[in-house]
């Protein structure tokens, strides 16, 4: 039974992920005194991509062709594991490490593929993505430990219920801020990366996937949107778990919180500009300090 629920959750999240991406894009447009693309624009884009053929450079190996599928599959896997309140699954193997490194596997293959085509932009994007990842990963683990310590375990359902029952504290607030910055970094947004740029020389994630087109790029975009939703859900579950007492069911609260975070992300992207690449370590060290403080304050 639980496997069926898991599959259902994957389908629901995969279907909704482009909508969340669309909400962010639209809100960003509104905040920047534009009209912004419609909420469903990402779906139309995906439909367009899936109607198109792949074009591969004759120099690429199987890694380049397989990477989009692996990337998408790891995003699906992460979506299967992330705790949602949609279904009570009674799972015991939803370990946070599995989820984080599932996403890491997808990124690893994309970085390999970025080198495969031999274009200079791909290599630059890949190396920058890995540079940022090296900084993000330890801080991410540290931040998640603040929740894991409270839960005495690394099972995600366990962590989610532990942080829900622990109430608002200084530690929780610090950890929430740290995770918000990490969400910005993980989803490739300003000030870390700029998802809207056409300037190849400045690209990170976009540079890495620049050689892809058609169905492959559709899978990558969809996978990215799904990964983004999973990251937002982690934020909701672990760092914003409290629901005001009221008649609304928890699921509705969760959806509202996802939307609020989407708007906050759009706001962060609008409010500032991209950082100089080599200033990023400073930002992430500060984030690491926040999570350390969160652990100390516990």
């Amino acid at each position: 039974m639980s496997v069926l629920f898991m599959l259902l959750q994957v389908v629901v999240l995969a279907v909704l992920a482009p909508l969340v991406a669309g909400v962010i894009k639209n809100t960003k447009g509104k905040m920047q005194s534009r009209r912004g693309p419609g909420y469903f624009q990402v779906y139309y884009d995906l439909r367009k991509f899936f109607k198109k053929d792949n074009v591969f450079s004759p120099t690429v190996s199987w890694i380049f062709k397989a990477a989009p599928y692996i990337y998408f599959a790891t995003a699906l896997g992460a979506a299967a594991l992330v705790p949602t309140l949609l279904f009570d699954r009674g799972l015991h193997y939803d370990n946070i490490f599995v989820l984080i490194y599932m996403l890491g596997l997808g990124r690893f293959f994309l970085a390999l593929a970025s080198l495969d085509a031999g274009s200079s932009f791909g290599g630059m994007g890949g190396s920058r993505e890995m540079f940022i990842n090296i900084l993000v990963e330890p801080v991410l683990m540290l931040t998640l430990f603040t929740v894991a310590l409270r839960a005495n375990g690394t099972g995600m359902s366990q962590m989610a219920s532990a942080s829900a029952s622990s109430g608002i504290s200084l530690s929780a607030i610090l950890a929430a801020i740290a995770f918000l910055i990490l969400t910005v970094a993980e989803t490739g947004r300003i000030p870390v990366d700029n998802p809207d740029t056409h300037l190849e020389l400045t690209m990170v994630h976009e540079g890495m996937v620049l050689e892809y087109c058609g169905r492959s790029v559709g899978l990558i975009f969809w996978g990215s949107a799904l990964k983004q939703l999973v990251t937002i859900l982690l934020m909701v579950n672990f760092f914003l778990p409290w629901n005001p007492a009221g008649s609304l069911p928890p699921v509705v609260w969760m959806i509202l919180k996802v939307l609020v975070i989407a708007v906050v992300l759009a706001g962060i992207e609008t409010s500032t500009n991209k950082m100089r690449l080599f200033r990023l370590p400073g930002l992430l060290i500060a984030t690491g300090c926040l999570s350390l403080l969160a652990i100390i304050a516990m």
């Binding site: 534009r34 300037l199 991209k274």
Partner: peptide
């Protein structure tokens, strides 16, 4: 100039 650093508010204000 803001497009060089992804500062969308500046790009839009300049364009307007």
């Amino acid at each position: 100039l803001c497009a060089g650093m992804g500062f969308a508010v500046g790009i839009m204000a300049g364009a307007r």
